[in-house]
Write a protein that binds this DNA or RNA. Structure first.
Lengths: 129, 129
DNA sequence: TAACTGTACTATGCTTACTAGTACAGGTGT
DNA sequence: ACACCTGTACTAGTAAGCATAGTACAGTTA
């Protein structure tokens, strides 16, 4: 389910957080779908349960999952209205990426084409595997 | 010139790297423009010169600057043709951001508008301060 | 020569990440 | 009630990374 790059400088828990967010925003993990338990995932990935625990805690803090003691951790349905800060953060990341693409020589028309491609994929509901 | 967030979890040298890259891709720092020396910047920012050194080394490794012993460190002109890996990396980051914007409920039309705004700013040559 | 430049070390202390282990409380099925 | 799962919350230890301080070398420029 997950692949970790143990040679990467990114901490393991952060890789997990990123991966799970990616699965959530790409609708691979559905709202209210249960995540593997910290113990199951830790033995799958052969890492310590506390590390999973930290990742899940971070995901919960960021609002992507909710956890019920004794039951498990679940994907939190996307809430509208509470995402202003995150959207602003995404917009400044977008500005940065666009600026760097321009800096590296990608023509504006090609950038727009890429964005439209990504949006049409999204509209079709197809997942990019 | 730079602002560091000393409360951030990001290491100081990485903040420097990010800041300088941002200035470069937004054309605030011009090609072949000299960066402050490690000693000047370290006293400006009241951090150790070795930390600046590490940031400059990272920037050089990533291809954004070049350093000449005895002379200083300079913004490297953007080279065309050698940016495939970086562009691909940017594209996957773009895909991620678009997906998350969609996930958080931003309509596709608004995303396109944002992108076009950013591109028209870029075309005008105006800097976003 | 003096004053700058980048570069390359060494040593130290602090912080973070990760592991291992343990234990508690909650939930579910038999 | 028991067994087995779940998340949660700790403690302790180790390793790695970060930042600092200091030093020194070589190159450049006036």
């Amino acid at each position: 389910m997950f692949e970790l790059d143990l040679r990467s400088r990114a901490p393991i828990y952060e890789q997990l957080v990123d991966k799970i967010i990616e699965l959530i925003i790409n609708n691979v993990l559905k709202p209210d779908e249960q995540l593997p338990s910290v113990r199951v995932l830790s033995s799958e990935l052969t890492i310590n349960p506390n590390t999973i625990q930290k990742a899940y805690r971070e995901l919960e803090y960021r609002g992507y999952i909710y956890s019920l003691p004794g039951k498990g951790s679940f994907v939190k349905p996307a809430v509208s209205g509470d995402n202003t800060a995150r959207l602003q953060s995404l917009e400044s990341e977008l500005a940065r990426i666009i600026a760097e693409m321009r800096y590296l020589g990608m023509p504006p028309g090609e950038i727009v084409t890429r964005v439209n491609d990504l949006l049409s994929k999204d509209k079709g509901g197809k997942m990019n595997d």
